[in-house]
Nucleic acid binder design. Structure first.
Lengths: 196, 196
DNA sequence: ATGGGCATGTAACGAGTTACATGATTTT
DNA sequence: AAAATCATGTAACTCGTTACATGCCCAT
């Protein structure tokens, strides 16, 4: 029990996963986060999930059930009534913050004058490959969602569709970038830095 | 002097800004970060810029110059030869990490069953408005870049072009999302949560 | 019997934030 | 005279990570 203070976004993400109605262990939550949140939100580390679950439990927003499975202890969590209320209030009444983007490749591009153009091209291509990888994994998710209850996973499917567009657009942007980079005249700015 | 250990990405971002050759104060770096990094990388807080500058100075990667301007002290920083070398090594030899995305709106969409559809639509629309705002600000940046030395800002212009596509694609995705949301049958899942 | 997956947790740490505190200079 | 901008910095804190530590269960 206690503290109505605003929780970290990750706490709401975990409550959100629990709002699908299943009773889950920390381990299972981590797996699910890796299969869903990962694509549009960072999947929290295992240890943070446990930390967050404890906090949520202390606040009375989740209920736990301790199962003595032979010799080891397994704790499963489910949403409490208060947790569901807090979650709904959060979802309805707080406005989503703007997305947080740390685009390391864009930073490299911004600082393109630091490397030979071929290096940059390599890095853009590597990023492109990564995007393709994400797209195939997303496709797997979409396949799974197609098999399951259409009502429950309605919004998950919308996010998956959004994600597909998102990553595809990024991949197309990388292709355009590669075209633009190939047109760039040889830079002389490498020599303008201190120490050369 | 000291420590060849890997610096946080933000330190390299600051070194990167200094690699454009100007001598800058912490305050000026913050302003510039807000006008550039902001669009593809989080602009660090003022206090962190000072922290990072001190770290970089201790490591001998930047040189400072203390100007006694009347009564107050102003510290300007410029890249040292070692800093330039460290920066170039980083840019050429370490591969950029995948982008970090925390898309709060996507999380809300994923948890769409928690709110009335109209709420969701409002939030998507608000996000769309924010994207438009970012686009107009980016357009201002592009105008500025068009006036300045084309050689120096070559890569900055590429990033700005990338950013424009990025935010435009997001805006288009929001429009598609709104269309899809309007087709969605009324959900009954609001009633399936604990406590209702 | 060994390796991988299931399962839980702690400790140390680091990046980055907000809030606080101060004061000069410039513009209105 | 007041407000905005320039300018620097500290303190407290929190989110979140990696590394560590443990041990069960199941398949090969």
């Amino acid at each position: 029990m206690a503290s109505r203070q605003p929780l970290p976004a990750t706490a709401y993400a975990i409550l959100g996963l629990l709002s699908f109605g299943r009773e889950l262990t920390g381990y299972e939550l981590k797996q699910w986060a890796d299969d869903s949140l990962r694509f549009f939100y960072t999947a929290p580390a295992m240890s943070q999930i446990y930390t967050e679950l404890e906090r949520l439990h202390d606040a009375g927003l989740v209920l736990d059930r301790v199962v003595q499975d032979g010799n080891r202890t397994i704790r499963s969590y489910r949403l409490s009534a208060r947790g569901a209320a807090a979650l709904r209030t959060w979802a309805a009444e707080t406005r989503p913050e703007p997305p947080v983007l740390k685009h390391h490749l864009a930073l490299r591009l911004f600082l393109g004058h630091l490397v030979e153009p071929e290096r940059l091209v390599e890095q853009v291509r590597a990023h492109r490959t990564w995007l393709e990888h994400m797209l195939t994994e997303l496709a797997d998710v979409r396949d799974d969602l197609a098999h399951d209850d259409p009502d429950t996973w309605r919004y998950a499917r919308l996010v998956a569709a959004w994600g597909r567009r998102y990553y595809e657009s990024e991949a197309a942007a990388m292709d355009e970038l590669l075209a633009e980079l190939s047109l760039l005249p040889v830079s002389r700015s490498l020599e303008n830095l201190p120490g050369s």
